[in-house]
Design a protein around this nucleic acid. Structure first.
Lengths: 195, 195
DNA sequence: GAACATAAGATACGGCCGTATCTAATTAAT
DNA sequence: ATTAATTAGATACGGCCGTATCTTATGTTC
């Protein structure tokens, strides 16, 4: 048996760590994943991890960014406002399927602890991610005349995201029935769309 | 100086612990409060605390139940649906003022971690607490003819609670402007109330 | 290729968690 | 009153966190 002599550095080391983190995330879920466990799995030490990520939440975010299929959002264009909203939720549901529901909840729970002075920052970063998905849909609907205007208050634009979060928390999944209910019972009325 | 010889038991001991927990919660906030710290402050050991509460979240809940003014909800009766909704949010805001915003967020964050099989249970307990506040308001509004019916889908009835949570998380507080916006921009449209 | 800078890796620390085990005090039962 | 059942209190453990310190390997630079 040969002793390892090469010492990984930089990007190569980081990639190896993230791979282990992703595997453990899939195998054990968010709660059970520990910094020390990932370090051990990657045959390094937690010192190395703490040099890169401040805590578990950030490590997992980096892992998901690398291995999750999160970046493939396509602006829906079904021809109707309702169809576009359903398509938006459908795409989000398929993303969440690649993660386990527990991962998303655990991650968000961890992050909630830290929202203090980064509130505004957090608001701008996270929420606008989803708001930026919603805005084009509103633009199209307004152009078609389905809704009265394209610009809506921040809370209204963020509403799909809020409903989504609630769904994940309380039900752990995002069923088709739930998607339809959210669109028909809440979103369409808020935008004053007659059904 | 006299050594303490009496050993507190049962309710007396529990009351002493909760008092210390409440003081530390006010002084340090949720994050900084620790089981060991409360035990030390109450001149006992964490074994005693763990016999009573499974974790920090439950200890704090018990503390708030005892010292917070949470139980004084009065069903609003302002004469209008809009007025009742605003009154509901107003009452909630005053409750949250007795807690620090951080306490509520920290507590909820901790609880989110544990929602697994107790999801349904959790749903019934927590959400229905707020839904039970909302339902009388809907009954009154329907009786006055302001809304078309008193029975609405679960998601709709829970919507005020969801909006409230989002407000606490993203803004740390519940301003009057936010309350008005939630009512006028979201809730009234959802219930199809013309403005 | 020698000297320097950088980053990995090893180790140890104090803090808190949650559990287990043992003792000693208090209360209740006979 | 003596005995039995509870429950408080003390102590110790392994686990993980996040930080600090030190050594050692790998580069980069001249």
């Amino acid at each position: 048996m040969s002793e390892k002599k090469t010492r990984r550095r930089g990007a190569a080391l980081e990639a190896a760590i993230l791979k282990v983190a992703w595997d453990q995330l899939q195998a054990q879920g968010y709660q059970a994943l520990t910094i020390e466990g990932v370090a051990a799995g990657a045959a390094t030490t937690k010192t190395v991890l703490y040099r890169r990520w401040p805590d578990k939440a950030h490590l997992v975010i980096a892992t998901i960014r690398k291995f999750g299929n999160l970046v493939s959002y396509q602006v829906p264009d079904t021809g109707t406002f309702r169809g576009d909203l359903l398509d938006l939720f459908g795409q989000l549901a398929s993303v969440l399927d690649t993660l386990k529901g527990e991962t998303f909840r655990g991650l968000l729970s961890d992050r909630l602890k830290q929202v203090k002075f980064d509130q505004i920052l957090d608001r701008l970063n996270n929420d606008n991610a989803l708001a930026s998905y919603v805005q084009p849909i509103l633009d199209h609907a307004a152009a078609r005349g389905e809704i009265s205007q394209a610009r809506w208050p921040e809370r209204v634009v963020n509403l799909p995201g809020i409903l989504l979060l609630n769904e994940i928390f309380s039900r752990r999944e995002l069923t088709l029935a739930a998607q339809t209910a959210m669109v028909d019972e809440i979103l369409l009325p808020v935008f004053s769309v007659k059904q």
